[in-house]
């Protein structure tokens, strides 16, 4: 059975490292893996989606509506935007940080309120946390991705923590390993 993880956020937030880490981790765990990324224009501050799929044999590189087991979101509005992609029994792991999109900046629209509560009211499992705060605690606002990965790791009983740590060490430049491991731990334990 293929499992699907969608990573969503705003261009420039660092989702490519998260997908690189997951790809490495899942391949090492013996799965067939496909990771689909967005490059080019969409990256420029736009809504960015990365698909990670794993299982015995994966065909399509993308995740469609109603197929995601997990949505990992770097930003609150982006989690809500892609809710339709979640399986009814799927889980959302979300950083509660908000980044105003241009229609909100120009005043044409309001940033929707109480999104976590609205998702929960639909029966969706939402694991929400201020990951930016924890990333800063770890030493850099850029470590939000590893805080989120730490949080996601709690739902993967079949993959032991050492495997995550191994993958982090491979995917992160040596001088940032300590910082990222700390961010991972903070995400896992909060």
């Amino acid at each position: 059975m293929t499992k699907n993880i969608m990573i969503v956020g705003v261009g420039g937030q660092g989702s490519l490292l998260a997908s690189k880490l997951l790809g490495r981790l899942l391949l090492d765990a013996g799965f067939d893996v496909k990771v689909s990324e967005v490059h080019g224009m969409s990256q420029r501050g736009g809504s960015v989606v990365t698909y990670v799929r794993f299982g015995e044999k994966v065909y399509s590189p993308i995740i469609d509506k109603g197929e995601a087991d997990y949505i990992v979101s770097f930003e609150l509005l982006e989690a809500a935007r892609y809710v339709e992609y979640l399986k009814p029994e799927g889980k959302i792991v979300v950083n509660t940080q908000t980044i105003d999109p241009m229609p909100v900046i120009t005043g044409a629209m309001e940033y929707p309120e109480n999104l976590v509560e609205k998702m929960q009211a639909k029966g969706i499992y939402v694991d929400a946390m201020d990951c930016l705060k924890l990333a800063n605690e770890a030493g850099s606002s850029k470590a939000v991705n590893l805080v989120l990965m730490g949080k996601l790791s709690k739902y993967f009983d079949e993959i032991p923590e050492e495997k995550w740590i191994e993958a982090i060490k491979v995917c992160v430049p040596p001088k940032f390993v300590e910082l990222n491991l700390k961010a991972f731990e903070l995400g896992k334990n909060n």
């Binding site: 224009m41 501050g45 736009g46 809504s47 982006e78 809710v83 399986k87 999109p101 309001e110 609205k118």
Partner: peptide, 15 residues
């Protein structure tokens, strides 16, 4: 597959 959605119109986030 079935899926759920929220009633809110989400502000677009173009590049």
């Amino acid at each position: 597959p079935e899926s759920v959605s929220l009633e809110d119109t989400m502000p677009a986030r173009p590049p």
